[in-house]
Design a protein around this nucleic acid. Structure first.
Lengths: 344, 344
DNA sequence: TTGTAAGCGTTATCAA
DNA sequence: TTGATAACGCTTACAA
């Protein structure tokens, strides 16, 4: 059983490759009967078009590159999961890459995607303005690029995210209203949104005349969300505890940390929410099953994915010069779910 | 700035495309100086080889297809995450697909992978013997296929998994030794390993002379692990409760369910482990933070991924007819971690 | 050590 | 409505 391709089909049916190609591509300039013959034969012999050949000839692919910091973060996982469900029916295939928050890995991923000649790219950058030059170059000369989640970036294109400072402001304010004054902010290092979230946290403190304390901004220095940094984090809180500086509330600024802190507080014999109230940016649906159930600021991941894909495909279809376009920012509203961990 | 390709490099340097190609591919039959010139020029002009052209010519790619039921299941996520880390340094690129436990989606994914001419495929099938014909056809005539996790499949190839019945036997036995006799088994529908796990559960009951009760095999009928089936599951337990048939221990046969059941039991005012002990197949690292900390049967996901990739690459490199080979099954041992949820 | 030329499977242009 | 032909970017005999 030799390979079945357009040439072999043409030979078998006494047609030219061109005609077979037209039949398979549903061209208008072809006799109905011929088309049927070709399609029947192709079906019967399980013909599979060669996308590389097609790509080489047409210069187009149906691939969409997705570049995210981590797969193992509930937020990004949910996002990509939704993209999968949406892209496939529209005949686009996802090419997902992780950057681990690293500019070099991001560059490698982007390089690969250009080589593959993807039709477009959806990216949550490794950090603020990572690979700006390269991304701009891609967006202008190769394929459209869309930013999501980490949208603090000089690249001029559509940006999809949430109001990080506002959401953090609200969460902090809620804790203040519940009588907490020693509020800590827990954040990962160098991820784009942290700055905005810290600002929201600070503003809330300021508006309620609570002095800002540097030692209450706790940086957890992980490279990978699956990495075990429990011990380091525990040390930080232990230190605060011995200095009698233990916060009585914590705002978690990143996805996975807010969950971990519950375990750490338990080990330090601090009860949540009595001793310490906790709320965090967390998209895991396990938040509800945690001990105690964790209050969360939840991003509308699916809607964000839907819009990202929609905007991207629009740009793909449009042939306009992307340099001269006017792009908008699309800011979604998060939903804060108050559970046990913030009940006083 | 016209596209830079082998031809344009050749023209610029007054060489033939063949020579440029040889330089770029580190061929031995080339003058060192020429090679340097070409590489320098390529570097400077940011030359990016076109993989489609290369593929078309050589008939080979560096793509590895990964077909799994769900991304949103901690076990598969961990597996694929490890694959990513291992594959990239070896210059293989992953092409991941979800089947949602559906044979049709699986077929589509496999079809796509063949078209892309992937070098090999790692798959955890949608269910027992899904797409057997197609998979065999692929393995024989297209590229090597390796099975993992769900290895109850007629395809004759390397299989990587765990001793599901043994692990479940041990977990059940542990609960029996802790004095529990009304032990339920909680399982998803139609996923390949369930059968073996039920067997282990039954055997343990049998060996300790505990009568098997059909109503204690609880089927949770979800399509997607993110789907909300809490209510249905709750109803099942409620019913058992009102009939005074509430089990005092539960063995969770699938990844996500074991976590959910904790929340459901809490809502029914049953305390874990006092009223009901729980242990489950769960690879989430959140198990430790759950209320109470969940005892888990943990699969050595990373090692499994490592071996899967190693075996696959070996098959890719070997040119032998895969019909006539003798394949082995590689069974890993799980690690059971006993936490609060099984402490009596 | 380098060049020439053919061809991988498609599609697009032009001619029939 | 169909066919002949060239071309996409690359590799690889074979020739020089």
């Amino acid at each position: 059983m030799g390979k079945v391709n357009i040439k072999s089909i043409a030979a078998a049916l006494n047609l030219s490759p061109a005609t077979v190609s037209r039949a398979l591509n549903d061209s208008y300039e072809i006799k109905k009967e011929t088309k049927q013959r070709v399609l029947a034969y192709a079906e019967e012999h399980n013909y599979r078009p060669n996308p590389s050949a097609k790509h080489l000839k047409t210069g187009k692919t149906n691939l969409i590159g997705v570049v995210i910091p981590f797969l193992s973060s509930p937020f990004f996982l949910e996002f990509i999961d939704e993209l999968y469900k949406l892209a496939w029916p529209q005949h686009y295939t996802l090419l997902p890459f992780q950057t681990q928050n690293g500019e070099e890995m991001e560059k490698e991923a982007l390089d690969f995607l250009i080589r593959q000649n993807v039709a477009g790219i959806i990216i949550s950058p490794a950090f603020e303005n990572s690979n700006t030059e390269l991304l701009r170059n891609i967006h202008h000369d190769h394929c459209p690029v869309i930013l999501f989640d980490r949208i603090q970036h000089d690249l001029d294109t559509y940006k999809i995210g949430i109001h990080n400072s506002l959401e953090t402001y609200n969460a902090t304010e809620e804790l203040i209203k519940k009588g907490r004054t020693k509020i800590a902010f827990l954040c990962g290092k160098d991820i784009g949104n942290t700055k905005d979230r810290i600002r929201g946290y600070k503003n809330a403190l300021h508006n309620y005349s609570i002095p800002f304390r540097e030692e209450y901004v706790i940086h957890a220095d992980y490279q990978d969300p699956t990495e075990n940094i429990d011990n380091e984090l525990k040390e930080v809180f232990k230190k605060l505890q011995t200095m009698d500086n233990m916060p009585n509330a914590i705002v978690g600024g990143t996805d996975t940390l807010s969950v971990k802190v519950l375990g750490i507080l338990a080990e330090l014999d601090l009860s949540v929410p009595q001793d310490v109230a906790v709320i965090g940016f967390t998209n895991t649906n396990l938040a509800n099953y945690l001990n105690p159930a964790l209050s969360t600021i939840r991003q509308p991941t699916q809607e964000m994915a839907r819009l990202a894909l929609e905007l991207l495909i629009k740009l793909i279809d449009k042939q306009q010069d992307r340099r001269d376009m006017v792009y908008g920012n699309f800011m979604f509203q998060a939903t804060t779910i108050y559970r046990k961990s913030t009940e006083v």
